[in-house]
Amino acid sequence: MEKLKRSIVVTSGKGGVGKTTITANIGAALANMNYGVVLVDADVGLRNLDLVLGLENRIVFDLLDVIENRCRSYKQALIKDKRIGNLYLLPAPQTKQKEDVPIEKFKELIEEIRNDFDFVIIDCPAGIEHGFKMSAEAAIESIVVTTPDLSSIRDADRVIATLESMEKNPPKLIINRLKKHMVKKSQMLSIEDILETLNVELLGVVPDDEYITISTNNGEPVVLNKTKPLYKYFHNIAQRIIDPQVALENPFNEGNIFQKFASLVGLKKPK
């Protein structure tokens, strides 16, 4: 089968909005759908993606080892996930600075990996400095993650402006940690409010869920467990990355009582 050869950067501007968790889960969801996925942690010095995936004790070579030719090929540094066959991680060095990675070299590496796999997903560091520029330059597509709070939206806006000025594919948006009951009481910004400001295409919505903390601590992406409520949202995002025509999984759209019951017992929604 022809490889899809897509490179996507997951970014947000503000820290702590869930870039790493979303990268891990989208990657795992895509790999579950039998696509070859490489997750690249670009957060040099503050790597976390290995933890979220539960691969931290298997790191031998890292990103900088590949760039500075300390290993034969990038493939030697890739860590294969034992639970999901098609998922690989290229970890970031923990003892170095972001500036130690030259932008051009990183871009070349991402291009090389992209040609061998279906997806390269780059977990971008917070901020709009070197680490962001490096990740954004290297990828062709971009996903901006925001939470429904003003500071996160403002930072996302800034990042979108920078991405737009790079003249690449228009960025897509994921709204993370939406609290449904708060939106209903208009205590939290709604999806519409956020889209009014950011004015970009919405890729997906992920509601707030306590299980994500457990999942991160255990190093097990949510997508591995089909019974968990967040599974369908990440799966939906992965589907929408493959085919933008797939309908958005909207947390406010609960359907009728039969559909609710069907989703409770794990059946698919009737179309």
Binding site: R154, D157, T162, T197
Partner: peptide, 23 residues
């Protein structure tokens, strides 16, 4: 839309059809 962190600047009168976002 004029996005956060960007400046739309001109010597002329500006007619903006869009929003000026926070920041």
């Amino acid at each position: 839309n004029v996005r956060s962190g960007s400046v739309l600047e001109s010597e002329k009168t500006i007619l903006l059809i869009g929003n000026v976002n926070p920041g």
